[in-house]
Simulated scan of single mutants.
Amino acid sequence: MTLACERLPGVTVIAVAGEMDATNRAQLEDYVRDVLEPPGGQVVFDLSRVPFMDSSGLHVLLMCATTCLRSGGTARLAGVQPLPARLFEVTGVLSHVPVHETVDDAVAAALESAERSG
C-alpha cells in the first residue's frame, strides 16, 4: 500500500493505492493520524486505486470519519472500486459516510460543506 497527501485550501486529500487490510492497518492509522494533526476538518479519501479492502481498512476510515464529525468536519470517500463498494454496502457505511464518484466531486462537496458551516 502506498499513501500520499495533498493539502488543498480547506480540505485534505489522502490518496491510497493498493489493498487495505490487516497487514497494513497500522501503517494507514499512523499515516492518517500524522497527516490530520490536529484531527478533524474536511478530509477526502481517494480510493480509486484500492481494489480490495477488509474490515481493518474500513475501521480506520470509520475512525477518521468519527473524528472529523466531532470537530465539525466530514470524511468523504471518492473513486470507490467494486469490492470496497460492496463492503460499504453490506456494512451500511454508505448511509453514514458520503461517497463521491470522483475526487473533484468530493473536494467540491467538502468545500461547500465547510462554507455552510464556517
Rank of each mutant, 00 (worst) to 15 (best):
M1Y: 09
M1F: 12
M1D: 05
T2L: 13
L3F: 15
L3I: 13
L3E: 02
R7I: 11
R7C: 11
L8N: 08
L8S: 07
P9D: 13
P9L: 08
G10F: 03
V11W: 06
V13H: 02
V13E: 03
V16E: 01
V16F: 03
A17L: 02
E19W: 02
E19G: 08
E19Y: 03
E19R: 06
D21W: 06
D21N: 10
A22G: 13
N24A: 10
N24T: 06
N24G: 00
R25H: 08
Q27T: 11
Q27I: 11
L28W: 12
D30N: 13
D30M: 11
D30T: 15
Y31L: 06
L36R: 00
G40Y: 11
Q42N: 07
V44M: 06
V44S: 05
V44R: 04
F45D: 00
D46C: 05
L47R: 06
L47A: 13
S48Q: 03
R49T: 10
V50F: 15
V50E: 09
F52T: 08
D54Y: 14
S56C: 15
V60F: 05
V60R: 01
L61Y: 08
L61M: 15
L62I: 14
L62V: 15
L62M: 13
M63L: 10
C64W: 04
C64N: 07
T66H: 13
T66I: 06
T67H: 11
R70M: 10
R70L: 14
G72I: 04
G72C: 06
A75I: 06
A75F: 05
R76Q: 00
R76E: 02
L77E: 05
A78E: 05
A78H: 08
A78C: 09
G79Q: 04
Q81K: 11
P82G: 06
P82R: 09
L83T: 09
P84T: 01
A85F: 15
R86M: 09
L87F: 12
L87A: 09
L87Q: 10
E89C: 11
G92A: 11
S95Q: 15
V97T: 01
V99W: 03
H100S: 03
T102H: 03
V107L: 02
A108K: 02
A109L: 09
A110N: 00
E112P: 05
S113F: 10
A114E: 14
A114Y: 14
E115N: 11
